[in-house]
Design a protein around this nucleic acid. Structure first.
Lengths: 247, 247
DNA sequence: CCGCCTCTTATGTATATACATATTGGCGAA
DNA sequence: TTCGCCAATATGTATATACATAAGAGGCGG
């Protein structure tokens, strides 16, 4: 959406960035079609009046971003647009609500400590039966329910969670501060609100809801599984992606 | 999910990769908490017995991946886990259906060429009234409707599209092959099926559906806007993210 | 005590150089 | 003709070096 317009801007950029921008632009504009061979490193070095190392770093970065493919002995080639990927940011709900200019409030609906059931083990990716904490919470924007949170926390991975009441603080931010996470998996789908969910969200049973489920692992151990249910059209996930942003 | 287990694997890695893996691991394991100062470049260089350049490249990469923050004169610091971002891959529908082991079929429901209306201009991010192509298509998995595609294509950006009937080939793959794209924006939400959508998808009006909208630009010019509607629970978007994969 | 200047320090960027490594194309022997 | 080996080539990785730049630390004068 933003391009280098003025000569000044281009001159202000480092050579590295300039090479990167030039080449991405040619690829994205279609001037260099998929399959086209990008000039060799030494050619570009000559062209830009810089060393091969500088060009190498820029091209390596483009390769990492997926715009080009590098083949030893043959050169670098423009790749065809890959499987469309988008960076989806999932924010803290409090921040999300406040960004809408609405007052945020949080309430704990239920809290239960128990040995994991068979269902729990599937959701949390557990192998044995271990203690878990089962929480249900409601996030409000102003007076209206904004999102229902149904969460399981593995007490094996996070024993400190057993001592937290979660009556004041939402488990999400608390966990982020207490457990480093290494992998997260998201599932996003539409569901019809069940009786309980509908009651909590103050909508009609059967209404369309957006469900976002997240599972988190830390160093190969399952930490938590959570399902956020947003009522109907009220919520939307937005993702924006520019391949050259790989920079 | 996968870690370097054996000494052999570590030895096989380049120094660059090894430094990267070592530091990410310490951060992700929590050994270096948010706010912790990573050793200075020259210290790490000494520690690994390599030059500062090599360390510099590794640290720069970690900074780009968002794991650390670099401050001149002060050093590099571990950042707190950021807004959780996930790489969401949106595949070709044909591939998606076939991955489920179901026969895929495609049908064009309507095709209309017209001057863009006010609505079209909002959807497509157009400034003036220009010709657009309005398509509605149905993707089937076996006998059942899988996904309804409602698409606008800017004929200013893609004049060749006017000559395509889109009766055999779906517009998505065709566009990918004909237009390089530079930016895409996705919106994902749950909606209740309207009359027309319900009829096309052979579901009841008001049923919960997952709607994925995508807008695509090429070099600042809007190319296409598309809305995919998936019936109810039948579909799910999955995203997986490991921060150290920023490498 | 505050504001300004300078010095120090750690990172940012770029260079020339060297050697490793994968791949292609050609040459020669079976 | 085909297989196998070698040499040429483009990229991959690392080094030592140099200078730029931003920002904190400390000193100095008003």
């Amino acid at each position: 959406m933003n391009k280098m317009e003025t000569v000044e801007e281009r001159e202000a950029m480092s050579l590295h960035q300039r090479i990167l921008a030039d080449i991405s632009e040619r690829i994205l504009s279609g001037e260099w079609a998929p399959g086209h061979r990008v000039p060799f490193e030494y050619e570009l070095a000559q062209q830009y009046g810089c060393s091969r190392m500088t060009v190498n770093k820029a091209l390596s970065q483009l390769a990492k971003a997926g715009l080009i493919e590098r083949r030893r002995r043959s050169g670098s080639f423009v790749r065809r647009p890959q499987s469309q990927a988008a960076v989806l940011e999932i924010h803290d709900i409090k921040v999300e609500v406040q960004a809408l200019g609405l007052p945020y409030s949080y309430a704990l609906i239920s809290r239960q400590k128990r040995k994991s059931t068979a269902d729990d083990r599937v959701l949390l990716d557990l192998k044995q039966s271990t203690p878990v904490l089962d929480l249900t919470c409601l996030h409000r924007a102003g007076a209206r329910p904004f999102c229902l949170e149904q969460r399981l926390i593995s007490l094996t991975a996070v024993p400190e969670a057993a001592d937290e009441s979660f009556e004041e603080a939402a488990p999400g931010p608390w966990l982020v501060g207490h457990v480093p996470w290494s992998t997260a998996e998201h599932r996003i789908r539409a569901t019809a609100a069940g009786e309980e969910v509908a009651a909590a969200l103050e909508i009609e049973a059967g209404a369309a809801c957006l469900a976002v489920e997240r599972r988190t692992w830390s160093a190969d151990h399952p930490v938590t599984q959570v399902r956020f249910t947003y009522p109907g059209d009220s919520h939307m996930l937005v993702a924006r992606f520019t391949p050259s942003d790989g920079s």
